[in-house]
Design a protein around this nucleic acid. Structure first.
Lengths: 251, 251
DNA sequence: TGCGGCCTCGCTATTTCGGGGGAGGACCTG
DNA sequence: CAGGTCCTCCCCCGAAATAGCGAGGCCGCA
């Protein structure tokens, strides 16, 4: 909502009504197909070529809704581009939404990825909003377009707050429609288990942890085993990784 | 933005201008004191008794800006209420903002906490927005008020989208002003090191990792040691924890 | 053409971890 | 009060990780 809009109340209200319609549709949707339709509507409302929601997953089974060509999305998955894509990599370290131009495209794999993306009509401008949910969930909402820098900056300045809302609502709905992830792993750890894993995660040996917690090493081992069991982990390292990634402990 | 507002464009625009002012102030603030002032303004704009931003840390050093009395905030910290507070506990598992009423206040510690909170004038109504940042950061933005259910629901329905924006902008600025998190940028890992740590993080033993990567276990060890060195970790578990928490590997 | 980083392979000895048991007391909830 | 969870302690032994050495080839960058 740039200053230029404050005067043109009617146009502003009309746009807001459209945005409202999108957000309400996001609230009302009950199917994944509905989300795909909404992505397309988002493009129209904001006047951009492409919009995309991508839930970046561990194993590579990405959750995707977007307007990119199937050729490109297929290629993206095949080549496991999410490990290279500066948008994904960069957003993972940020909270603030970010313009593609401000990312680091220098590494060779990134340059090759960019070239490939361009050839698939992704667009030269883009704006990405990182989204995080419980249990370390991470997703991206991205809008991309083909235009000059000035026009793009103006568009982003105008809409970026609404981008955040749409991204947020989108993720909200995806989490709602896909409860498997959240339901699958909700086993809370006991305080002592958290203590044990936390100290292990900062590099303490079992002996040190036991001493720090003022318990015997045998007791400690019971906690670790118990935590391992709750986390479905097959060894301590795995348990630590899961606990950190689920946000159960903070390193 | 309830339907009742769509007719009264002037009032709507006036409110939007106020919201804009808040968000712009949030963008412009350069000090933590400024954030405290903004919290107070947020209360005025939305017409609620209290607003609060709380960055929940495991270590206990909470980041707080809010309008609650010092008696209450002090008590909250002293008693480590963030481990009991259903708002914190509940939001930690959710993505969707949540009304206090919809939380589970049954556990005995929660009931005692509630009683204590009431006596300190926290208010009977509340709305909490969970916020997540990189490296497992977790924060809450909360608005609370003293009023009837109907009035509160109406207020939430009217403003909840804007609550999200304010919460988001608030956290954005806090992260910006608190560089300690971002300062701990580690050296990038080599691809092979990432492979090694990733497989270790999903529970593979060194032998399995070596086999999967089709390298000798000795080579693997060099990667692990190298990664440990880069991450400043004192053992593999520590390295995994840091790599996961820094987002260098995804589990 | 260096230099440095990355990837690859090897040895031995010591320390640590993992899995398998069992057992008692404290606390809260239904 | 029973049943569940949590916290605490103890045994043994095989498997795994760690620490300390060294060595060579490949590649990109200056």
């Amino acid at each position: 909502m740039g200053p230029d809009l404050k005067g043109s109340s009617t146009y502003f209200m009309a746009y807001k009504a459209e945005l409202d319609r999108i957000l309400e549709a996001l609230d009302a949707t009950e199917t994944l197909e509905g989300l795909q339709l909404i992505v397309e509507q988002v493009c129209e409302v904001f006047g951009v070529d492409h919009a995309m929601y991508l839930w970046v997953e561990t194993a590579g089974n990405h959750y995707y809704f977007g307007t990119y060509s199937e050729a490109w999305t297929g290629r993206y998955l095949d080549k496991a581009y999410s490990r290279v894509d500066p948008v994904v990599v960069g957003c993972y370290q940020r909270f603030h939404p970010v313009d593609w131009k401000r990312l680091d495209w220098n590494p060779k794999p990134a340059r090759e990825f960019l070239k490939d993306a361009m050839e698939h009509g992704v667009g030269n401008q883009g704006y990405a909003i990182p989204i995080r949910g419980p249990n370390g969930q991470f997703a991206l909402f991205t809008l991309s377009h083909n235009c000059g820098d000035a026009a793009w900056e103006k568009l982003v300045a105008k809409y970026n707050r609404d981008f955040i809302l749409v991204a947020h609502y989108f993720n909200r709905k995806v989490l709602e429609l896909e409860p498997s992830r959240t339901a699958e792993q909700a086993q809370p750890l006991s305080p002592r288990e958290v203590d044990a894993l936390t100290l292990l995660a900062i590099g303490y040996s079992r002996a040190q942890v036991a001493q720090t917690l003022a318990i015997s090493e045998h007791t400690l081992r019971v906690y670790i085993e118990s935590a391992r069991f709750k986390l479905g982990a097959i060894n301590t390292t795995h348990a630590i990784a899961r606990a950190v990634s689920l946000g159960l402990i903070v390193v």
